[in-house]
């Protein structure tokens, strides 16, 4: 009896997952496809770019700086044992561009902007703002959701690039200015080993994929949440957990495909 009910439970969990996936797919296509008739859709996007992108800038820059500095410090300590400390620039740049840049920026983005998106949309749902928008004859998918999706898609790749540059600069700060690696070899080693297409562009492809997934999860969780304060808090937690897992899992798959 209990085995059967356990199997049934498993089946129901599977069905719930599939139906949530289906709903989120329909949600996404309804939000992004089809024309928007609002003349002010650019103004809406601008507002969201500010709250999603610009407000995430500070945490991105600070984290990037520290990660670059730590990478240089650790890398130097290991490489100096082999007398190859001038390769530290190359190590910092490749690590940042290929892995840490896209992944850490996406994780920070999920925590900073993703959770805020979920909570904001959830609150609009709980206070019936989305319903009343519908009754005014405005589709909230187009008016509320679509600009937030686009803002996320645009912001995260930009943030990732800034994150990488700041990190590599932070690495040079530690390696060159503090530990005394010759600055010419820091940069030229880097330039010799970093390929624009293979490393920079592949890293940016990752960032674009992560931007899509994280924003999608955040916005859908907000739109689909139970409209109570408890439901919003659970949806916010789910956004951060699902988005982080999705980023890390996808990163492995993308790395396996790219490098």
């Amino acid at each position: 009896m209990s085995v059967i009910s356990r199997v049934a439970l498993l089946g129901r969990a599977g069905l719930d997952t599939v139906s949530a996936l289906g709903r989120s797919g329909i949600f996404l296509s309804n939000a992004l496809l089809g024309r928007t008739r609002f003349g002010n859709s650019f103004a809406l996007l601008l507002k969201q770019l500010y709250s999603v992108g610009v407000l995430s800038l500070a945490i991105t820059i600070v984290s990037g700086l520290f990660i670059g500095m730590v990478l240089a410090l650790q890398g130097y300590n290991i490489l100096v044992g082999y007398g190859s400390e001038q390769a530290v620039g190359q190590m910092v740049a490749l690590t940042m561009l290929r892995e840490l840049g896209p992944v850490v920026a996406a994780l920070l983005f999920a925590g900073r902007a993703g959770s805020a998106l979920t909570a904001e949309i959830g609150l609009m749902k709980a206070t019936e703002q989305l319903s009343s928008m519908e009754m005014i004859g405005v589709d909230p998918l187009k008016y509320v959701i679509a600009p937030r999706l686009w803002a996320g898609f645009i912001s995260l790749p930009l943030l990732t690039m800034i994150f990488c540059v700041v990190g590599i600069w932070g690495g040079s700060l530690v390696a060159v200015d503090w530990l005394g690696v010759y600055s010419g070899s820091y940069w030229s080693n880097m330039q010799n080993s970093v390929e624009f297409v293979d490393d920079v562009l592949n890293g940016m492809v990752k960032a674009v994929v992560f931007a899509f997934v994280v924003t999608w999860i955040a916005v859908f969780q907000g739109y689909d949440c139970e409209p109570t304060s408890e439901g919003i808090s659970r949806a916010t937690t789910r956004t951060v957990v699902y988005a982080s897992l999705a980023v890390l899992g996808l990163d492995f798959i993308l790395t396996a495909l790219m490098f």
């Binding site: 740049a93 561009l97 540059v165 590599i168 940069w187 010799n192 970093v194 624009f196 490393d199 920079v200």
Partner: peptide, 9 residues
Amino acid sequence: VLAVKISGL
């Protein structure tokens, strides 16, 4: 910066 300074393009 990534293109010019870091990958030497």
